[in-house]
Simulated assay, not measured.
Amino acid sequence: MANAPECPVCGQQGVPILYGLPTRVAREAAAAGKVRLFGCVVPREPDQWTCAQSHTWRADDDDVLIAVIDAALRND
């Protein structure tokens, strides 16, 4: 996840957040630490990233978010 942004609080690499009912592939990616599952209830302004310290934030670049999620689900 080289393109993932760093946490604005602690500087650790971000992990994308997935909302909704996870597929088998999403559960496997979460078990590998490539994504974080945040459940089916999506907040009005959902965070997009989290870190190992459980800080959450939104980033400006949706293309990076999509690319990191795609790579995680493809098992890259």
Score class of each variant (00 low, 15 high):
residue 41 V to M: 12
residue 7 C to E: 07
residue 56 T to F: 09
residue 64 V to S: 10
residue 3 N to G: 04
residue 22 P to V: 00
residue 65 L to W: 15
residue 66 I to Y: 01
residue 35 V to A: 08
residue 73 L to E: 07
residue 15 V to A: 06
residue 37 L to V: 12
residue 48 Q to G: 15
residue 25 V to A: 11
residue 71 A to G: 00
residue 14 G to W: 10
residue 22 P to G: 00
residue 44 R to P: 05
residue 9 V to F: 14
residue 53 Q to T: 13
residue 30 A to C: 00
residue 2 A to N: 07
residue 50 T to D: 04
residue 66 I to F: 09
residue 49 W to R: 12
residue 35 V to L: 15
residue 56 T to V: 06
residue 64 V to Y: 13
residue 58 R to K: 15
residue 10 C to I: 08
residue 50 T to C: 06
residue 67 A to S: 11
residue 20 G to A: 03
residue 75 N to M: 14
residue 36 R to L: 06
residue 5 P to R: 05
residue 73 L to K: 04
residue 9 V to E: 05
residue 51 C to A: 05
residue 14 G to Q: 01
residue 36 R to F: 11
residue 16 P to G: 08
residue 44 R to I: 14
residue 72 A to L: 09
residue 62 D to M: 10
residue 45 E to Y: 09
residue 2 A to P: 09
residue 19 Y to H: 09
residue 28 E to D: 00
residue 31 A to M: 09
residue 57 W to M: 14
residue 20 G to M: 03
residue 40 C to A: 14
residue 11 G to Q: 03
residue 45 E to C: 12
residue 44 R to M: 11
residue 10 C to N: 06
residue 36 R to E: 09
residue 8 P to G: 13
residue 24 R to Q: 07
residue 8 P to I: 12
residue 35 V to F: 14
residue 34 K to A: 08
residue 69 I to N: 03
residue 34 K to F: 13
residue 21 L to T: 15
residue 67 A to Y: 08
residue 34 K to R: 11
residue 28 E to G: 03
residue 11 G to P: 06
residue 30 A to G: 01
residue 43 P to E: 11
residue 4 A to V: 10
residue 68 V to D: 10
residue 75 N to K: 07
residue 31 A to L: 10
residue 29 A to C: 11
residue 54 S to N: 03
residue 63 D to W: 09
residue 28 E to M: 02
residue 46 P to C: 14
residue 3 N to I: 08
residue 43 P to Q: 02
residue 73 L to Y: 05
residue 2 A to S: 12
residue 17 I to L: 14
residue 51 C to W: 01
residue 29 A to G: 01
residue 69 I to Q: 00
residue 34 K to D: 09
residue 48 Q to H: 15
residue 5 P to D: 00
residue 64 V to T: 13
residue 28 E to I: 07
